[in-house]
Design a protein around this nucleic acid. Structure first.
Lengths: 182, 182
DNA sequence: TTGACAAGTGGAGACGGTCTCCATATTCTC
DNA sequence: GAGAATATGGAGACCGTCTCCACTTGTCAA
């Protein structure tokens, strides 16, 4: 929401270190005491609490970083719009599969509000990729981006089913094929 | 599972008092410290922990009592089988509506295992009521009890939607009507 | 009834995770 | 480089959770 003040250099550094440490231990499926995130990041507990008053706040920051990283990689000027869309979708699923522990942890901790907030950025990204690819004539223009987003969401929220990894890759290929102009 | 040893009289009394206290505070939506359940029941913490090692264990006991009470009231010899079935179904929903807080709390705490365990008793009761009513010729005999149970289950798990109470009563009337022999 | 043993009790206090507080340190601004 | 603003860290307060055991109560055979 409020992007407010620019952080002082050292504060920014510490914040980033904390988020990185949290991301890593979430990803490994570790169940840490909240204070331990501080130790992992090499900062004091006070610093941890100033930046992230609760576990959920920390998880939200990790989640936001994940979404941003994904969205940033979405547009590569050296590729065609159609390739960008395909690459993004495959990359999305690959990322989820490679970090299933992270996906599970975030699904369990992140609260609906920040989930929704970051969903907006994702939606904008997908919509943009689809619009460009459609303008280029390679994908259909009668598909709602939200429909695609819903499919992605369904893939993500099934992260604890057996066979999930292979099923996900199969599913995203179906989506990619389904988007192609016939 | 293991019904094991019969409790000593005082132990039984204490256990019942704890469950009653828990039921009451769950119902009121209170968020008590675990130790406080003991105080409410007028027993020591040690007694609470011996009977219920965890919050989930306590919730499971409350849940079991609820289901048993519901099932016990199911068969009234002074009524016809058809009336018994109708009464049971309406009573089920009335009970849920009257104790929405309890339903919510139990839904949040009770673990799937004990949910399943008590589900069996419910299913037996419903199946029995339906069989008798069908033998009496007042309801159809081509409906699976599990289907009815599924309808009941969905009613219970929607306990926090707005309009839930009136929608639930409407829904159960549809079920009752739908079961009648045409 | 009573004695003796098993069963059950209560609550002080150990334990451990969460969070606050503030003297000190670092960065920023001019 | 001085002063203001900002950020730090970690000792220890705080507060639920849970254990432990000296003591009480119930049970039952005699």
């Amino acid at each position: 929401m409020t992007e407010s003040k620019p952080l002082r250099a050292d504060a920014r550094r510490n914040r980033d270190a904390i988020v990185a440490a949290a991301r890593s231990s979430f990803d490994h499926g570790e169940q840490l005491r909240f204070d331990d995130f501080a130790a992992r990041a090499g900062v004091g507990v006070g610093t941890l609490y100033r930046h992230f008053p609760t576990r959920a706040a920390l998880a939200a920051a990790v989640y936001e970083d994940e979404v941003s990283a994904l969205c940033d990689r979405a547009r590569d000027p050296s590729r065609s719009p159609g390739e960008n869309l395909d690459t993004f979708l495959r990359g999305f699923v690959d990322h989820l599969v490679a970090h299933a522990g992270l996906a599970r942890t975030l699904a369990a901790i992140v609260d609906p509000a920040s989930r929704a907030k970051n969903g907006v950025e994702l939606e904008r990204t997908v919509a943009d990729l689809m619009t460009r690819a459609a303008a280029d004539g390679v994908v259909r223009n009668d598909v709602n981006p939200e429909a695609v987003l819903m499919l992605l969401h369904n893939i993500g929220s099934a992260a604890d089913r057996p066979q999930w990894a292979s099923q996900s890759r199969g599913a995203i290929e179906v989506v990619i094929a389904g988007l192609k102009r016939t």
